[in-house]
Structure formats: C-alpha cells, structure tokens
Design a protein around this nucleic acid. Structure first.
Lengths: 191, 191, 191, 191
DNA sequence: AATGAATGAGGATTCATTCAT
DNA sequence: GATGAATGAATCCTCATTCAT
C-alpha cells in the first residue's frame, strides 16, 4: 500500500534495524536481506533508498554518532560551571540510551568498520575530535596546560568501558562506569 | 625429500600470516586463500592443518594472548614489590611487541570475533580475568578493598588506549600511553 | 490541468529517448528507467504507454525504419529514370538524418535484437525486402536478369558501411560511403 | 576427479561454449552459468579461470579473431600473385569454419560489444587494420593509388554479407557471397 | 605432505513490472 | 493521467571447504 512520503520512514526503519541487527549478531556480517527483513521490507527497497550496503552502514553510524552528539549537547546546555560541563559529557556517554548492549556492540563494530572505510573513519574522527575539544574546553579553566593529556585519559577510559561491555560479560552498568571516570577526573583535578 | 616436522613450522607461519593479514586489512574479512598465500602455501593445506577458518582465527588469537601473557610473566618475574608488579603489567601491555599497529588492529578484531564465537569469547575472558587478578594481586597490599574497582579502571584505560590507536590516527605511542596509565595508578595510590 | 492528447507526445518522447539512449550507451542494455528519465517521465508511465520494454524497443525500431522508409519514398518521388531511382535509394541511406552516430549505433543494435525477438526480425525483414525490391525495380530495366544479385551486392555494401561506422572509429562520412556504393553501381551497369 | 593441467582444457571448453551460446541465443545476454553448464562445469570454475564475464567474452572474441587470422595467413601462404593474395583473403572470410551461423552471430555480437568495451574495440580495430592492410598490400600493385578506397569497399562488402546472414533468414551461402565480392574486385581491377 | 581442481551456498545488486493513490 | 512505492527474480561473483592424486 504505497503512500507518499515513505522515504524518511523507511530510511529510519532501516537505520534502526541495522543497529539492532549488528548489535544482536555482534558483527558486521549481516546481510542487507536480514536488515531489510527486520525493517519489514525487501532488500531491493533497502538498496533503492540507500544505494548500497556501505551507505546503510554509514547512515547507521551517523545516526549513533548524532544521537550521542545530541545527548551531549542537551546535557551541556544545562551545565554552568566547567566542572558541570565535564560531568555532563561523562554522563551523556553512559546515559541509558547510549550505553545499551546493542548500541555498544554496534559502536565497537563501527570502530572496526573505520579501519576499512575512509568515510567511516572520517565520521569517527569527527566524533573523537569533538569529544576531545569538549573535554579540553571544560578542563582548561581547571587545570590549564594539563587539559590535553587528561582529556585523552578520560576519552580512553570511556572507550575502554565501552569495549569491555561489548563482550556481554556483564549487563552494562552505566552508573558504575560513570563513577569510575568521574573519580578519575576528581583525582586529576585534585592532583 | 619429505621434510620431517614441517607441521609446527607451517602452523606457525599460518598464525603469523593471519595476524599480519588481519592487521593489514583491518578486518576479519580476510580469506583463507589470502592467509595461505602470505604463508607460502595452498589454502587446502591451511585447512588440512587447522580444520577450518575458525580454528585458524582462534589459533591466531591464542598466539597473541599467549604472547602477551608471556611478556607479563617475564616482567612479573623480576618485580619484587607490589608497586613494581603493577608497573610490570602496565609495561608489558604497551611493550613494543604488543603495541604494534598490526597487533593492535588484530586485537580489536578479536574483540569483535569474541562477540560471535563462543570459543573466542572464552579465550578473551581468560585474558581479562588473568589481567584483573594480576592487577588486584598487586593493588591489594597497597589499597586493600579498593583494589577491585581500581583494577577495573586500569584495565579499561589500557583497552581504551588500544582501541584509540586502532584507528591509525597516530603512530602508536606506547610510552605516552604507559605514562597515562601509570599516572592514573599513582593518583589512585595517593588518593 | 489534465492535458488532452498527451499520449502521442509522450510516446514520441519515449521513442526518441530510446534511440538516443541506445545510441549513446552503444548497447541494448539500457533500463526503462534511463529511457523514461531522459524522456522526462517516470518508468511506470513508460510501461503504461507501451506495455513493456520489448514494445518500447519495437516502437523505436519501427520509428527508425519508418523514418528511413519515408526518406526513400521522398527521394524516389522526384526520380524519373531508373538510374535516378537507384541513386535516390543510395542517397537516402546515407542522408544526414539516418547516417548519424546515434542512429547507426541503434541500427546495429536492432540487428542484434532481431536475432532474439521474432517481431523485431519481422520488422527488419520487411525493411530488407522493400530495399531489395526497390533496388531490383530500378536495376531490372538496366541490367535485366542480373538485377537480383546486384541488388544484393548493393544492399550488403550499404549495411557494411553502417556496421563499420558503428565502431565510432571515424566520424560518419556519408558522402564518401555514398560515392563508394554509387561507384559499385556504375561498375555493374558498365560491366 | 581433479587431474593436473586441466586449465587449458577448461579454458578452451569455456571459449567454445561461449561462442556457441552467444551464437545460439543470438545475443550477449547469456549468463555465465549457461556458458559454464554448456562447458560442463560450475560457474564458479568459469570465474576461477577467467576472472569474470568480461574476460570470458574477450577470450572468445580473441579466439574467433585468431581463428580468422590463422585462416587468412594459411591461405596467404600459398598465394603467389597479388591477385591470388586478394582472393585468398576473400576466400578465408567465407570459408566454412568462419561463415558458420553461430560464428556469424557471435561476430555480430562482438561488434556490439566493441561499442561498450574498450578492450573489445581494440581487438576489433586490430582485425580491421590487418584486413585493410592485407587488402591494400594486394591491391597496390594492381591499381596503385585507388588501393585504399577499394580496400574499404571490399571490407564493407564482406562485413555486409556477414551482417545480412546474421538474421538467419537464409542458410549462410559462403560461395555465393564470395562470388559477389570477387566480382566487385574484378570490376574494380577492370575499371 | 601438498596441491590443483572443483563446487555449493550465499550475498550484493539490478531491474522490469505492478499497484495504490 | 501520472507516480512513488515496492518486490521477485535473476545474475555476477566470492569463498570456505572437499577431494583425488
């Protein structure tokens, strides 16, 4: 039953199905058919809307990254002090929406994807730069010249907790991870 | 002349070729043929020795994990104080042999593999447990009850630096990463 | 405003787009979508008007053949002597409109099409018979019984020049080709 | 039952199957599977030996062109006078082996292929140049400066007869076609 | 021990065609 | 009349795996 304006709906469904499928399977070895079926359409339609598998993956990545970016911006908006800004970033990283098994798994897989695809790498680079600059921006007023390395330490720790949870060993525990990173921040500020 | 004892040589060549190939390609999408060619033999022989692609991957993983384990044990052997033990572990993690682009990339890919393959997951779990217990063993005498969470923080940071370097953005800088983790340790001990 | 009499306009646009597309691509591997887009409409509409891809091709063929037939008739109308009739046919074959790169290429492709499609074959057969009978009609008064074979020779030569130009090696040179065929005619008449 | 040295046998079988299939179907729209099945093997093996569909087509083209070239050389070897050389070329063109329904059809399709594929065009160009230079070589001693255009006329006529027979209207009649071309040659020499 | 030969299964992609609006 | 939506079928190609020698 073809209606008008289906494109954004279909694209959205496909993106979500892609993340869910990659998250569930735990690898990029998902077929377009699987994704399309999960999104409730034929694989041909998926190709029609995205042009190819790579584009689908990229769109899914953009979605996750955008989602995360939005969350960060939202939390940042209410933060008045540098310290609050830093906590906002850490908080956004482990918010329920992002620190979800499927999303974590997809995230890990996109890191792998970035090793092969230039566009994926570019996407991830942008995310990393933004995270870094956000952290530095919050750290500078507090620790000045040490902002750069400490930002790297925080970023590494965040990624580290993501990858550790990607193994599904334990149910993702956002608050605990958040506490660890915040503690690291506190130690650095106190030091 | 039918060479005796070729088997271990062949197996070893295949394992090294696997790591190199995965590292170079940057993904698990390497064919058995590619690996076999790099190892200087036919893909049929690779199958003959390992039974299948999965086994080859697993063997490569075991090799990397074993390599790392050996390095840790070696460094640990000369460490007399708890503090020295902790530094030994951190040092081993970023030693030149392990913190090599190809190895880092392979490492990341094995994390992905672990999401799909039970055996791979088991392998990785053993590595994580051992690392954790080693860290706790060194931390307990120094900070007692806080050993558990701090061990987790260190482990996360190590993994975080690995994944960050997997993107090839920068040439792996082992010493810098090591310094960051050591600093974290110092802060925790001082705190 | 529902335009009246759009059908013939649409059909015509599609036919011309088909010839242009085949000519440009150089093969029958053109999609209905390409043709429709070039004609400024949706592929669904193209199907609506013609019923299917085969019909579109057939219509394009009919168009080219009809075009050529019209040209021949027009030139024939002014020809009073048998010799003039023969020259008129040859002239029409290499007139600018027909001996155009795109048309030549389409022509060649329709020969191929005729090997697969019965209807296309029938169409081409009609063209060949008419050309043959036109030639014989002009030749008989001049050379009597030899009219049949000579007509075949002329026809072969015309087709030969078409196919040779289909390779795009040289810019189509109608006058030169025309001269060669006319010369052949002269030799036969003199012989 | 894998034996050694199968490659040339398989390749040969595939080339012949390709020509037969294209000839029978009458178009380049033959699948690799069809060709492979006709050659008695899996499509995967066809890909293995040739790398892809295009390569298969090219190899088939090379085969036909080579076959024809060989025939020409063979006939040319026994020709002592210029006139004999010209007849040898014409004869070779319509020899039973070349002027075979399947081969004629394949030939026509390769002309089409040449419009799309650069390599195919190059192949055909070589054939055309060689034919042309062979003809000129034979004509020059007899008619001097007119050798060039007459060579073109002969070549066009040969191609014309090929294309006319590609429609399967009549059983290929090599001798008749040969007679027509030879007659054209005679007229030119006499003129 | 070692390999060339061979294939079945599977996946991305394309496209003619249909249909509801 | 006109089109966006949708798909089934087909095709090229890849690859892990097996087997006879």
């Amino acid at each position: 039953m073809p209606k008008l304006g289906m494109e954004p709906i279909r694209r959205d469904a496909l993106i979500k199905a892609t993340i869910a499928e990659i998250g569930q399977v735990g690898s990029l070895d998902v077929t377009v058919s699987q994704i399309a079926k999960r999104a409730g359409m034929s694989s041909a339609l998926a190709h029609h809307y995205f042009g190819g598998k790579d584009q689908i993956f990229l769109a899914a990545m953009r979605h996750i990254l955008g989602q995360y970016g939005g969350q960060v911006r939202a939390e940042l908006a209410g933060a008045k002090t540098p310290r609050a800004r830093l906590e906002a970033i850490i908080h956004a990283s482990f918010a329920a929406d992002n620190f979800h098994p499927e999303v974590i798994s997809a995230w890990l897989n996109f890191y792998v994807q970035a090793q092969t695809s230039d566009q994926a790498r570019r996407l991830l680079r942008v995310y990393q730069r933004r995270l870094h600059s956000n952290l530095v921006h919050g750290l500078r007023p507090l620790i000045g010249g040490r902002a750069q390395p400490v930002a790297q330490g925080i970023a590494a720790m965040i990624d580290g907790f993501y990858i550790r949870h990607a193994l599904h060993e334990v149910r993702p525990d956002g608050p605990a991870a958040m506490a660890m990173v915040t503690e690291y921040l506190d130690l650095q500020l106190a030091g």
